[in-house]
Computed example of a mutant assay.
Amino acid sequence: MKLDIPAGPFQAYLFDCDGTIADSMPLHYVAWNQTLSEWNCEFPERTFYAWGGYPVVKIISLLNEQQGLAMPVDAVAERKEALYYEILHQLKAVPEVLEQIEEQHGRIPFAVVSGSTRKSVTASLETLNLLDKFDVLVCAGDYKNGKPDPEAFLMAAAKLGVPPEACLVFEDTEMGIQAATAAGMASVKILQPWERPGA
Rank of each mutant, 00 (worst) to 15 (best):
L3D: 05
A7I: 14
A7D: 11
A7S: 14
G8Y: 06
F10R: 06
Q11G: 08
A12E: 04
Y13D: 02
D16L: 03
D18N: 11
D18C: 04
G19Q: 09
G19L: 06
A22F: 05
D23H: 12
M25H: 03
L27P: 01
Y29V: 01
Q34L: 10
Q34G: 02
L36V: 04
E38G: 04
W39H: 14
W39I: 03
N40A: 13
N40Y: 10
C41T: 15
C41W: 11
F43H: 15
F43R: 09
E45D: 07
Y49T: 00
G52N: 13
P55H: 11
L62F: 10
L63F: 08
L63W: 13
N64A: 08
N64R: 11
N64K: 13
N64H: 11
N64I: 06
E65Y: 13
Q66A: 15
Q67E: 11
Q67V: 01
G68R: 15
G68D: 09
A70T: 12
V73A: 06
A77C: 12
R79F: 01
K80I: 00
A82D: 11
Y84E: 08
Y85T: 09
E86I: 03
I87Y: 04
H89W: 06
H89V: 08
K92T: 10
A93R: 09
P95F: 08
E96Q: 15
E99N: 10
Q100I: 10
I101E: 07
E102G: 00
Q104T: 05
G106K: 08
G106H: 10
R107K: 14
I108M: 10
I108L: 15
V112F: 01
S114L: 02
G115M: 06
G115T: 03
G115D: 08
T117S: 15
V121M: 04
T122K: 14
T122R: 14
N129C: 11
N129R: 12
N129E: 14
L130T: 01
V136M: 05
L137M: 01
A140S: 14
P150V: 05
F153C: 10
F153I: 09
F153E: 10
M155E: 13
A156V: 00
P163V: 07
P163F: 05
P164Y: 04
P164E: 14
A166P: 01
A166C: 10
A166V: 04
E171M: 03
E174P: 00
A180K: 00
T181K: 15
T181R: 15
T181D: 13
A182V: 07
M185Q: 07
S187E: 03
V188A: 02
V188L: 04
K189W: 04
I190R: 13
I190T: 06
L191D: 10
L191R: 13
P193Y: 11
P193A: 05
